[in-house]
Amino acid sequence: MEVLIIANIYLTSKSVVSSSIIPLLMSGTSFISTLLVPLVSKRFALNKIMLFSQASKTGLLLIFTVALYLWPRLSLLGVCVLMILITLLDGFEGPVTAAMIVHYTTDLIKANAISSVCFQTIDILGWVYGGVLFSILGLYRSLLITIILFGIATWMTSLLPRVAFDELKNETDRQTLIKGWKLLLKNPILYTLVGIEFFEEFANLIWVSTIILVFVSERLHESTRYWGYANMTYSVGITLGGLLVFKISEKLLERKVYSMMTSLVLTASLILVILVIPNSMAFLTCSVLIGIVSQLKEIPEITILQENIPENQMVNISSAFEIISVIRFGMLLLVMSFITQKFGITVSFLLATISLLIEAGLIFKYKKYFA
Protein backbone atom coordinates (compact mmCIF):
# COMPACT_ATOMS: atom_id res chain seq x y z
CA MET A 1 0.00 0.00 0.00
CA GLU A 2 2.61 2.54 1.05
CA VAL A 3 4.79 2.01 -2.02
CA LEU A 4 1.80 2.83 -4.24
CA ILE A 5 1.15 5.97 -2.18
CA ILE A 6 4.77 7.08 -2.57
CA ALA A 7 4.66 6.29 -6.28
CA ASN A 8 1.46 8.29 -6.53
CA ILE A 9 3.12 11.27 -4.85
CA TYR A 10 6.12 10.87 -7.13
CA LEU A 11 3.92 10.90 -10.26
CA THR A 12 1.85 13.80 -8.98
CA SER A 13 5.04 15.79 -8.54
CA LYS A 14 5.67 15.22 -12.26
CA SER A 15 2.20 16.15 -13.48
CA VAL A 16 -1.46 15.94 -12.53
CA VAL A 17 -2.21 14.01 -15.71
CA SER A 18 0.35 11.37 -14.75
CA SER A 19 -1.27 10.75 -11.38
CA SER A 20 -4.60 9.96 -13.06
CA ILE A 21 -2.99 6.90 -14.64
CA ILE A 22 -2.72 5.18 -11.26
CA PRO A 23 -6.36 4.07 -10.69
CA LEU A 24 -6.63 2.91 -14.31
CA LEU A 25 -3.51 0.78 -13.99
CA MET A 26 -4.52 -0.66 -10.63
CA SER A 27 -8.05 -1.57 -11.75
CA GLY A 28 -7.06 -3.25 -15.00
CA THR A 29 -4.08 -5.11 -13.60
CA SER A 30 -6.01 -6.30 -10.54
CA PHE A 31 -8.65 -7.74 -12.87
CA ILE A 32 -6.00 -9.77 -14.74
CA SER A 33 -4.39 -11.18 -11.59
CA THR A 34 -7.79 -12.10 -10.10
CA LEU A 35 -8.58 -13.99 -13.30
CA LEU A 36 -5.32 -15.95 -12.99
CA VAL A 37 -5.68 -16.87 -9.30
CA PRO A 38 -7.37 -20.28 -9.90
CA LEU A 39 -4.60 -21.34 -12.30
CA VAL A 40 -1.86 -20.48 -9.82
CA SER A 41 -3.63 -21.99 -6.78
CA LYS A 42 -3.99 -25.39 -8.43
CA ARG A 43 -0.19 -25.66 -8.70
CA PHE A 44 0.99 -24.09 -5.45
CA ALA A 45 -0.09 -24.04 -1.80
CA LEU A 46 -1.91 -20.85 -0.77
CA ASN A 47 0.70 -19.85 1.80
CA LYS A 48 3.41 -20.25 -0.83
CA ILE A 49 1.50 -17.94 -3.18
CA MET A 50 1.28 -15.34 -0.42
CA LEU A 51 4.99 -15.67 0.34
CA PHE A 52 5.96 -15.36 -3.32
CA SER A 53 3.72 -12.31 -3.72
CA GLN A 54 5.13 -10.54 -0.66
CA ALA A 55 8.77 -11.42 -1.41
CA SER A 56 8.40 -10.32 -5.04
CA LYS A 57 6.90 -6.98 -4.03
CA THR A 58 9.81 -6.44 -1.62
CA GLY A 59 12.29 -7.21 -4.41
CA LEU A 60 10.51 -4.91 -6.87
CA LEU A 61 10.52 -2.07 -4.36
CA LEU A 62 14.24 -2.55 -3.76
CA ILE A 63 14.90 -2.47 -7.52
CA PHE A 64 12.77 0.65 -7.85
CA THR A 65 14.66 2.40 -5.05
CA VAL A 66 18.07 1.59 -6.52
CA ALA A 67 16.94 2.62 -10.01
CA LEU A 68 15.55 5.89 -8.70
CA TYR A 69 18.80 6.58 -6.84
CA LEU A 70 20.93 5.91 -9.93
CA TRP A 71 18.56 7.66 -12.32
CA PRO A 72 16.73 10.43 -10.39
CA ARG A 73 14.80 11.36 -13.54
CA LEU A 74 13.29 7.89 -13.83
CA SER A 75 10.77 7.87 -16.66
CA LEU A 76 7.03 7.68 -16.19
CA LEU A 77 7.10 4.35 -18.01
CA GLY A 78 9.47 2.90 -15.40
CA VAL A 79 7.23 3.92 -12.50
CA CYS A 80 4.14 2.60 -14.28
CA VAL A 81 5.80 -0.77 -14.92
CA LEU A 82 6.62 -1.01 -11.20
CA MET A 83 3.03 -0.24 -10.24
CA ILE A 84 1.64 -2.72 -12.76
CA LEU A 85 3.80 -5.52 -11.35
CA ILE A 86 3.03 -4.70 -7.71
CA THR A 87 -0.71 -4.42 -8.40
CA LEU A 88 -0.56 -7.70 -10.29
CA LEU A 89 0.93 -9.37 -7.22
CA ASP A 90 -1.53 -7.59 -4.90
CA GLY A 91 -4.44 -8.95 -6.93
CA PHE A 92 -3.67 -12.48 -5.80
CA GLU A 93 -3.91 -11.64 -2.12
CA GLY A 94 -7.67 -10.96 -1.82
CA PRO A 95 -9.00 -14.35 -2.98
CA VAL A 96 -6.05 -16.19 -1.43
CA THR A 97 -6.55 -14.53 1.97
CA ALA A 98 -10.28 -15.39 1.98
CA ALA A 99 -9.42 -19.01 1.19
CA MET A 100 -6.66 -19.23 3.79
CA ILE A 101 -8.95 -18.04 6.58
CA VAL A 102 -11.15 -21.09 5.98
CA HIS A 103 -8.12 -23.38 6.32
CA TYR A 104 -6.73 -21.76 9.46
CA THR A 105 -9.80 -21.37 11.67
CA THR A 106 -13.29 -22.66 12.35
CA ASP A 107 -14.53 -19.45 14.02
CA LEU A 108 -15.03 -17.69 10.71
CA ILE A 109 -17.01 -14.66 11.85
CA LYS A 110 -14.37 -13.67 14.43
CA ALA A 111 -11.58 -14.31 11.96
CA ASN A 112 -13.27 -12.17 9.31
CA ALA A 113 -13.87 -9.40 11.85
CA ILE A 114 -10.21 -9.34 12.85
CA SER A 115 -9.16 -9.46 9.20
CA SER A 116 -11.39 -6.47 8.43
CA VAL A 117 -10.02 -4.48 11.37
CA CYS A 118 -6.41 -5.23 10.40
CA PHE A 119 -6.83 -4.32 6.73
CA GLN A 120 -8.69 -1.09 7.48
CA THR A 121 -6.19 -0.06 10.15
CA ILE A 122 -3.34 -0.67 7.72
CA ASP A 123 -5.14 1.34 5.04
CA ILE A 124 -5.71 4.26 7.41
CA LEU A 125 -2.13 4.27 8.67
CA GLY A 126 -0.77 3.76 5.17
CA TRP A 127 -2.61 6.72 3.67
CA VAL A 128 -1.90 8.98 6.66
CA TYR A 129 1.73 8.11 7.39
CA GLY A 130 2.74 7.44 3.78
CA GLY A 131 2.31 11.11 2.95
CA VAL A 132 3.75 12.24 6.31
CA LEU A 133 6.89 10.13 5.88
CA PHE A 134 7.39 11.45 2.38
CA SER A 135 7.05 15.09 3.48
CA ILE A 136 9.34 14.73 6.53
CA LEU A 137 11.97 12.21 5.43
CA GLY A 138 11.95 12.63 1.68
CA LEU A 139 11.60 10.03 -1.04
CA TYR A 140 14.64 7.79 -0.44
CA ARG A 141 14.34 7.48 3.32
CA SER A 142 10.61 6.81 3.00
CA LEU A 143 11.34 4.05 0.51
CA LEU A 144 14.03 2.61 2.81
CA ILE A 145 11.55 2.39 5.71
CA THR A 146 9.00 0.81 3.38
CA ILE A 147 11.54 -1.80 2.24
CA ILE A 148 12.25 -2.70 5.88
CA LEU A 149 8.52 -3.07 6.59
CA PHE A 150 8.10 -5.20 3.47
CA GLY A 151 11.00 -7.38 4.59
CA ILE A 152 9.39 -7.91 8.01
CA ALA A 153 6.08 -8.76 6.31
CA THR A 154 7.85 -11.29 4.07
CA TRP A 155 9.49 -12.96 7.07
CA MET A 156 6.16 -13.15 8.92
CA THR A 157 4.47 -14.60 5.82
CA SER A 158 7.10 -17.33 5.69
CA LEU A 159 5.97 -18.45 9.17
CA LEU A 160 2.41 -19.23 8.05
CA PRO A 161 1.50 -22.93 8.39
CA ARG A 162 1.43 -24.82 5.12
CA VAL A 163 -1.98 -25.16 3.48
CA ALA A 164 -2.47 -28.58 1.90
CA PHE A 165 -3.73 -28.55 -1.68
CA ASP A 166 -4.72 -31.00 -4.39
CA GLU A 167 -2.51 -30.65 -7.47
CA LEU A 168 -5.03 -31.33 -10.23
CA LYS A 169 -2.78 -32.46 -13.07
CA ASN A 170 -5.66 -34.03 -15.00
CA GLU A 171 -7.67 -30.81 -14.96
CA THR A 172 -7.11 -28.50 -17.92
CA ASP A 173 -6.55 -24.78 -17.43
CA ARG A 174 -9.90 -24.09 -19.09
CA GLN A 175 -11.67 -26.38 -16.62
CA THR A 176 -9.90 -24.65 -13.76
CA LEU A 177 -10.94 -21.20 -14.96
CA ILE A 178 -14.62 -22.08 -15.31
CA LYS A 179 -14.88 -24.29 -12.20
CA GLY A 180 -15.83 -21.41 -9.91
CA TRP A 181 -18.38 -20.07 -12.39
CA LYS A 182 -20.05 -23.48 -12.74
CA LEU A 183 -20.34 -23.82 -8.97
CA LEU A 184 -21.69 -20.29 -8.72
CA LEU A 185 -24.47 -21.02 -11.22
CA LYS A 186 -25.43 -24.29 -9.52
CA ASN A 187 -25.51 -23.00 -5.94
CA PRO A 188 -28.64 -20.91 -5.14
CA ILE A 189 -26.91 -19.25 -2.18
CA LEU A 190 -24.08 -18.01 -4.37
CA TYR A 191 -26.11 -16.68 -7.30
CA THR A 192 -28.60 -15.09 -4.90
CA LEU A 193 -25.71 -13.25 -3.23
CA VAL A 194 -24.48 -12.08 -6.63
CA GLY A 195 -27.98 -10.81 -7.47
CA ILE A 196 -28.62 -8.88 -4.29
CA GLU A 197 -25.10 -7.39 -4.33
CA PHE A 198 -26.15 -5.54 -7.47
CA PHE A 199 -28.26 -3.15 -5.37
CA GLU A 200 -25.60 -2.52 -2.73
CA GLU A 201 -22.91 -1.97 -5.37
CA PHE A 202 -25.13 0.64 -7.00
CA ALA A 203 -25.81 2.36 -3.67
CA ASN A 204 -22.14 2.40 -2.69
CA LEU A 205 -21.25 4.34 -5.82
CA ILE A 206 -22.38 7.57 -4.17
CA TRP A 207 -19.14 7.34 -2.16
CA VAL A 208 -16.95 7.26 -5.28
CA SER A 209 -14.92 10.47 -5.46
CA THR A 210 -16.48 11.75 -8.69
CA ILE A 211 -19.96 11.48 -7.14
CA ILE A 212 -19.42 12.43 -3.52
CA LEU A 213 -17.34 15.48 -4.47
CA VAL A 214 -20.45 16.87 -6.17
CA PHE A 215 -22.36 16.50 -2.89
CA VAL A 216 -19.50 18.04 -0.90
CA SER A 217 -19.30 21.08 -3.15
CA GLU A 218 -22.99 21.60 -3.95
CA ARG A 219 -24.73 20.64 -0.70
CA LEU A 220 -22.05 21.13 1.96
CA HIS A 221 -20.19 23.97 0.20
CA GLU A 222 -16.85 22.52 1.27
CA SER A 223 -13.56 22.20 -0.60
CA THR A 224 -12.26 18.96 -2.09
CA ARG A 225 -9.93 18.61 0.92
CA TYR A 226 -12.99 18.00 3.11
CA TRP A 227 -13.73 14.80 1.17
CA GLY A 228 -10.46 13.38 2.50
CA TYR A 229 -11.74 13.82 6.05
CA ALA A 230 -15.00 12.09 5.14
CA ASN A 231 -13.10 9.20 3.59
CA MET A 232 -10.97 8.88 6.71
CA THR A 233 -13.96 8.88 9.08
CA TYR A 234 -15.61 6.16 6.99
CA SER A 235 -12.49 3.98 7.28
CA VAL A 236 -12.38 4.59 11.03
CA GLY A 237 -16.02 3.52 11.20
CA ILE A 238 -15.23 0.27 9.37
CA THR A 239 -12.48 -0.46 11.88
CA LEU A 240 -14.81 0.17 14.82
CA GLY A 241 -17.50 -1.93 13.13
CA GLY A 242 -15.08 -4.83 12.81
CA LEU A 243 -14.31 -4.63 16.52
CA LEU A 244 -18.04 -4.54 17.30
CA VAL A 245 -18.68 -7.64 15.19
CA PHE A 246 -15.81 -9.43 16.93
CA LYS A 247 -17.31 -8.53 20.31
CA ILE A 248 -20.82 -9.79 19.47
CA SER A 249 -19.78 -12.55 17.05
CA GLU A 250 -21.65 -15.33 18.90
CA LYS A 251 -24.93 -13.41 18.72
CA LEU A 252 -24.40 -12.53 15.07
CA LEU A 253 -23.70 -16.15 14.21
CA GLU A 254 -27.28 -16.99 15.11
CA ARG A 255 -28.81 -13.88 13.53
CA LYS A 256 -26.80 -13.29 10.36
CA VAL A 257 -29.89 -12.53 8.25
CA TYR A 258 -31.25 -9.91 10.62
CA SER A 259 -27.81 -8.39 11.09
CA MET A 260 -27.50 -7.91 7.32
CA MET A 261 -31.00 -6.43 7.06
CA THR A 262 -30.41 -4.10 10.00
CA SER A 263 -27.16 -2.88 8.44
CA LEU A 264 -28.86 -2.01 5.15
CA VAL A 265 -31.84 -0.25 6.77
CA LEU A 266 -29.59 1.79 9.08
CA THR A 267 -27.31 2.76 6.20
CA ALA A 268 -30.30 3.89 4.14
CA SER A 269 -31.55 5.93 7.12
CA LEU A 270 -28.18 7.60 7.60
CA ILE A 271 -28.03 8.56 3.92
CA LEU A 272 -31.43 10.22 4.32
CA VAL A 273 -30.12 12.09 7.37
CA ILE A 274 -27.22 13.37 5.26
CA LEU A 275 -29.70 14.64 2.68
CA VAL A 276 -32.07 16.25 5.19
CA ILE A 277 -29.29 17.78 7.29
CA PRO A 278 -26.62 19.02 4.83
CA ASN A 279 -24.19 19.92 7.60
CA SER A 280 -20.44 19.27 7.54
CA MET A 281 -20.21 17.80 11.05
CA ALA A 282 -23.38 15.77 10.57
CA PHE A 283 -21.88 14.34 7.38
CA LEU A 284 -18.68 13.26 9.15
CA THR A 285 -20.67 11.72 12.00
CA CYS A 286 -22.84 9.79 9.57
CA SER A 287 -19.73 8.64 7.70
CA VAL A 288 -18.40 7.05 10.87
CA LEU A 289 -21.76 5.43 11.64
CA ILE A 290 -22.18 4.11 8.10
CA GLY A 291 -18.72 2.56 8.33
CA ILE A 292 -19.66 0.88 11.60
CA VAL A 293 -23.01 -0.54 10.50
CA SER A 294 -21.61 -1.68 7.14
CA GLN A 295 -19.63 -4.37 8.94
CA LEU A 296 -22.86 -5.83 10.36
CA LYS A 297 -23.56 -6.95 6.80
CA GLU A 298 -20.15 -7.39 5.18
CA ILE A 299 -18.65 -9.78 7.74
CA PRO A 300 -21.71 -12.08 8.11
CA GLU A 301 -22.00 -12.13 4.31
CA ILE A 302 -18.38 -13.22 3.86
CA THR A 303 -18.94 -15.86 6.55
CA ILE A 304 -22.02 -17.21 4.73
CA LEU A 305 -19.95 -17.46 1.58
CA GLN A 306 -17.16 -19.35 3.34
CA GLU A 307 -19.56 -21.71 5.09
CA ASN A 308 -21.22 -22.80 1.85
CA ILE A 309 -18.17 -23.43 -0.32
CA PRO A 310 -15.85 -26.46 -0.17
CA GLU A 311 -12.40 -25.45 1.07
CA ASN A 312 -10.67 -26.59 -2.10
CA GLN A 313 -12.93 -24.38 -4.25
CA MET A 314 -12.86 -21.22 -2.15
CA VAL A 315 -10.21 -19.58 -4.35
CA ASN A 316 -12.19 -20.29 -7.51
CA ILE A 317 -15.38 -18.78 -6.11
CA SER A 318 -13.58 -15.76 -4.60
CA SER A 319 -11.96 -15.11 -7.97
CA ALA A 320 -15.33 -15.28 -9.75
CA PHE A 321 -16.91 -12.90 -7.23
CA GLU A 322 -14.04 -10.42 -7.61
CA ILE A 323 -14.33 -10.45 -11.41
CA ILE A 324 -18.10 -9.91 -11.24
CA SER A 325 -17.56 -7.04 -8.80
CA VAL A 326 -15.04 -5.30 -11.07
CA ILE A 327 -17.28 -5.58 -14.15
CA ARG A 328 -20.41 -4.58 -12.23
CA PHE A 329 -18.63 -1.61 -10.68
CA GLY A 330 -17.57 -0.23 -14.04
CA MET A 331 -21.02 -0.59 -15.60
CA LEU A 332 -22.94 0.82 -12.64
CA LEU A 333 -20.52 3.73 -12.24
CA LEU A 334 -21.41 4.89 -15.75
CA VAL A 335 -25.11 4.71 -14.84
CA MET A 336 -24.67 6.57 -11.54
CA SER A 337 -22.50 9.24 -13.17
CA PHE A 338 -25.14 9.81 -15.85
CA ILE A 339 -27.92 10.06 -13.24
CA THR A 340 -25.92 12.53 -11.15
CA GLN A 341 -25.15 14.70 -14.16
CA LYS A 342 -28.65 14.55 -15.61
CA PHE A 343 -30.86 14.68 -12.51
CA GLY A 344 -28.62 15.94 -9.71
CA ILE A 345 -26.92 14.57 -6.61
CA THR A 346 -30.13 14.46 -4.55
CA VAL A 347 -31.70 11.94 -6.94
CA SER A 348 -28.55 9.81 -6.80
CA PHE A 349 -28.68 9.70 -2.99
CA LEU A 350 -32.39 8.88 -3.00
CA LEU A 351 -31.84 6.04 -5.48
CA ALA A 352 -29.02 4.71 -3.30
CA THR A 353 -31.39 4.69 -0.32
CA ILE A 354 -34.08 2.85 -2.28
CA SER A 355 -31.54 0.30 -3.55
CA LEU A 356 -30.43 -0.54 -0.01
CA LEU A 357 -34.03 -1.00 1.15
CA ILE A 358 -34.76 -3.25 -1.86
CA GLU A 359 -31.72 -5.36 -0.97
CA ALA A 360 -32.91 -5.63 2.65
CA GLY A 361 -36.27 -6.86 1.36
CA LEU A 362 -34.62 -9.43 -0.90
CA ILE A 363 -32.50 -10.77 1.96
CA PHE A 364 -35.67 -11.22 4.02
CA LYS A 365 -37.40 -12.93 1.08
CA TYR A 366 -34.53 -15.39 0.56
CA LYS A 367 -33.54 -15.68 4.22
CA LYS A 368 -33.75 -19.51 4.03
CA TYR A 369 -30.50 -19.41 2.04
CA PHE A 370 -28.62 -17.34 4.60
CA ALA A 371 -29.86 -18.71 7.92
Rank of each mutant, 00 (worst) to 15 (best):
S325Q: 06
L272R: 01
A99W: 01
L149V: 11
F44P: 05
V17L: 15
I277E: 07
P23Y: 10
L70V: 09
Q175L: 10
K14V: 07
E322G: 11
S318M: 10
S249K: 08
M331D: 04
I49V: 05
A99N: 01
I196N: 02
F370T: 09
S249M: 06
L253G: 11
I32G: 05
T97V: 08
V79N: 03
S235R: 05
I274T: 06
E222M: 13
Q295P: 04
Y129L: 15
L62V: 12
L143Y: 08
T146K: 04
A360S: 12
V214R: 10
L24A: 13
R328F: 02
T267I: 04
L74F: 02
A230T: 02
F199Y: 01
S319W: 00
Y258N: 13
M83C: 04
D123R: 13
I114A: 13
I32E: 06
R174P: 07
S249C: 07
L46I: 03
M314N: 07
C80V: 12
G361M: 05
C80F: 11
L190W: 02
F92A: 03
Q54W: 04
G59Q: 07
A203R: 04
F150M: 12
G228M: 12
S135M: 13
E197A: 14
L289Q: 00
F64E: 01
L193T: 06
L350V: 03
G28V: 10
A230P: 02
A360T: 08
V17N: 15
V288D: 01
L144F: 15
N316C: 08
L60G: 07
L185W: 04
A203I: 01
L159Y: 13
L253F: 13
E322N: 08
V288Q: 01
T121Q: 08
I302A: 13
Y129Q: 11
M26R: 15
G241Q: 02
E197M: 11
V335C: 00
I290P: 00
E2A: 15
L205V: 11
A98G: 12
T176H: 10
L88G: 15
G361R: 09
S142L: 05
T192R: 05
M156E: 14
L88Y: 14
I323H: 07
L193N: 06
L82D: 03
L88F: 15
Q341H: 15
L89Y: 05
G138K: 07
E197V: 09
V335L: 06
L220I: 02
I178H: 03
L77M: 10
M281F: 08
E254C: 12
K368C: 10
V79Y: 02
R328W: 01
L35G: 07
S337D: 11
S235Y: 05
